[in-house]
Amino acid sequence: MLNATPESAAERVYREVKGQILTNEIAGGELISEGDVASRCAVSRTPVREAFLRLEAEGWMRLYPKRGALVIPIGEREARDVVEARTLLEGHAVRSVVGDDAVRGSLTARLAANLVAHRAADPADIAEFSRLDAEFHQLIVAAGDNPLLADFFVGLGERHRRMTTASVHRDTGVAARILSDHGELLAAIEAGDAEAFATALGAHLAGVHDIRSGERS
């Protein structure tokens, strides 16, 4: 129950609904109503309306007066753009660290710890599984020591998480593939092989997110 001021209630509704979108509890294409969300969160419609407007401004939903809010599905173009951006950012980061033994060693230690935690996580807990997946890739970009690129990558993190949860929902075998692929990516970084990393990353992202080769639509 959200016993709070209208401002904090709106923030909490925003975080709850957005979290459900990112973890695919509210799927793309689903129409949700202010009334249903207000009832579930035990608040009036005013903070729900404020939260919906914020989510619409961020591109997560489209509002239809007197009908509700449509959660915008992940489009093929969006998926391709996110994968392309991630490929560029992660590849750049790895190329910048492979020649520095100390930085590379520190990164591989953090990635190994993440992978241990990821393997121990229950794939059925999609929120935690997708969080650890996003963290693995964020650690790589952060190691590149370019704050502007790292901040941009964090901005992609929510779309990354949503795509991952959608993929895990679509195919139960995706979770095992993610863990296997992360092991391969870690091995490439440990070996200081930026080209092997780039190849493995491309295969990983295309396979996990079902990105097929071809022209953009």
Rank of each mutant, 00 (worst) to 15 (best):
A206S: 14
E190V: 11
R119P: 02
A85R: 14
E195H: 01
G173V: 00
L63K: 14
V13N: 10
A109Q: 06
A38G: 12
E78M: 11
A120L: 13
E50Q: 13
E158G: 04
D100V: 07
I32E: 08
L156F: 02
E16M: 09
T46F: 06
N146F: 02
V103Q: 09
V83D: 08
E11F: 12
H92W: 06
E11T: 10
R80L: 15
R216V: 12
S106E: 13
N114Y: 01
D81C: 03
N3L: 15
I189T: 05
R45W: 03
D36I: 04
G19F: 03
E7Q: 05
E184F: 12
G144K: 06
I211H: 00
I72D: 00
N146V: 13
R159F: 05
S213W: 11
S33H: 11
R110E: 14
D193N: 12
F197R: 01
V94F: 09
G105M: 04
A127W: 01
F197Y: 15
N114L: 03
P6S: 07
A85D: 10
R212K: 13
G173H: 07
G75T: 15
A121I: 10
G202I: 04
I189C: 04
I72Y: 00
H137I: 09
I26F: 12
E30L: 02
G59T: 14
V37S: 04
G202Q: 06
S217D: 12
R119W: 12
S217R: 13
I140R: 10
E78W: 10
A57F: 05
G144T: 06
D193M: 09
G29C: 01
I140L: 09
D122Q: 03
R212D: 08
V71S: 01
T164W: 04
A206Q: 11
E50G: 09
L156E: 03
S96H: 09
V154C: 09
G28D: 08
G183P: 03
D125N: 15
A150T: 14
G99Y: 15
E84S: 15
E190P: 08
A142G: 04
L186F: 00
A10Y: 07
G202Y: 10
V103C: 03
A134Y: 11
R67L: 14
G202E: 07
M61K: 01
H118M: 07
I74C: 10
E25T: 14
E7P: 01
R62A: 11
A79V: 05
Q20N: 12
D145G: 12
V48H: 10
L55N: 06
E25V: 15
N114A: 09
L185A: 04
A42D: 12
I21L: 05
V97D: 03
F197G: 01
A42W: 00
A69W: 13
H160K: 08
T5N: 05
G59W: 02
